[in-house]
Design a binder for these strands. Structure first.
Lengths: 215, 215
DNA sequence: CTCTATACATAACT
DNA sequence: AGTTATGTATAGAG
């Protein structure tokens, strides 16, 4: 790293010397980088910029693109991200309905349409989920009912625990159209987001039973 | 780059040798990088990974973090972007109502609410824009009307061009509630997204005038 | 820019 | 991980 005299590794104050050194060493660095990547089959990307450029992502991209062109090296996937990130950030901002000052009526209509589409998809998915949970709920209840019937028969034969067995029998669910069961579960316990999961809890069974008894 | 014999710059096939070389040269590269950054007051970041790891952003981040820790160097802003990008991508996907397989009912409700909010904002902004365009439209028409009156008076005095002056007079707009004017402009020319801007065009004035005459 | 003496990096070997 | 012979990178000069 020296040549005609050793140098101390500290900031070179003379501007000309510093720029010359920068140029020379950058060349050497790139050469070594390329050699390493070829010799060892490694992916290497350099991000190199003068301190005064810090923060200028655009400039960074230029440097990277130049580096990519000059070496033919494919740099990391990360390289396209600043631009990409900006695009995504703007996209999110858009969907959040923020910073709409620059949008024309036309743009807003389009955005509204997109939001409408998203809303439809979300509601579809919500319905799907509800249907699924409903199915689980019905299956669960069917199982419980069968078990209850068995227990009841067993109890009457044994002449004990009959009342307990009845507590597990929910004829209400047999007579309702599909949608109502979940609605019931939700209206009885509005804070319930996962009726199926929660149904396993005793207190919910109690609630459902109470509702059932009232009807 | 040699020492005990020169080497050709091409992939080292012997795995052990390749790994040793990688390790040594990487050290040298980092040393030179650090020297350059100190000597020339430059910001340099290295992104370095074995080819088999390509695509594993997580691993890349680990390398970068390790590099940052070991050198104390602040690497570029870009360093946080992969994580950020992922977050943003997921966010966008969310607002587009895509890939909802992993969302629970609870999440969907929240998303629905957010979309509802965005929609409200967008519609508010649309209304704002409409109001503004309406205001511009009214002002424009007022100006034209005044000019028309002046021209009409001038014309009657001069005994010429009276018919032409009347063409610029739109009493229709005076009698309508605020919303109707824009609706009219839009219904007359449905392809119009910017009634105000377009009103300056002669053909639209013609259309409005025609509509006015029919009523 | 080029040149060149010299310090440095490192390939091969232990 | 250490050693060393040798090729490279490069500081300073032209």
């Amino acid at each position: 790293m020296v040549g005609r005299g050793k140098i101390e590794i500290k900031r070179i104050e003379n501007t000309t010397t510093r720029q010359v050194t920068f140029s020379k060493r950058r060349g050497g660095l790139f050469k070594k980088t390329k050699e390493l990547s070829v010799l060892c089959d490694a992916q290497i990307g350099h991000l190199l910029q003068h301190r005064q450029d810090v923060g200028l992502v655009h400039r960074t991209l230029q440097i990277i693109e130049k580096y990519q062109r000059s070496t033919g090296a494919r740099i990391l996937e990360r390289d396209n991200h600043p631009r990409e990130t900006l695009r995504l950030e703007l996209g999110i901002q858009r969907y959040l309905g923020e910073d709409m000052g620059c949008l024309q009526y036309e743009d807003l209509s389009k955005l509204e349409q997109e939001l409408e589409n998203s809303m439809a998809k979300v509601r579809n998915r919500q319905n799907e989920l509800l249907q699924q949970q409903l199915e689980n709920l019905r299956r669960k209840i069917n199982d419980q009912e069968q078990r209850a019937v068995m227990e009841f028969e067993k109890a009457t034969v044994e002449g004990s625990k009959a009342v307990h067995a009845m507590d597990h029998h929910f004829p209400f669910f047999e007579e309702q159209p599909a949608g109502s069961i979940l609605q019931l579960a939700c209206s009885v316990l509005p804070h319930l987001q996962y009726p199926y999961l929660q149904l396993a809890q005793p207190n919910i069974q109690d609630s459902l039973r109470a509702h059932n008894h009232n009807n």
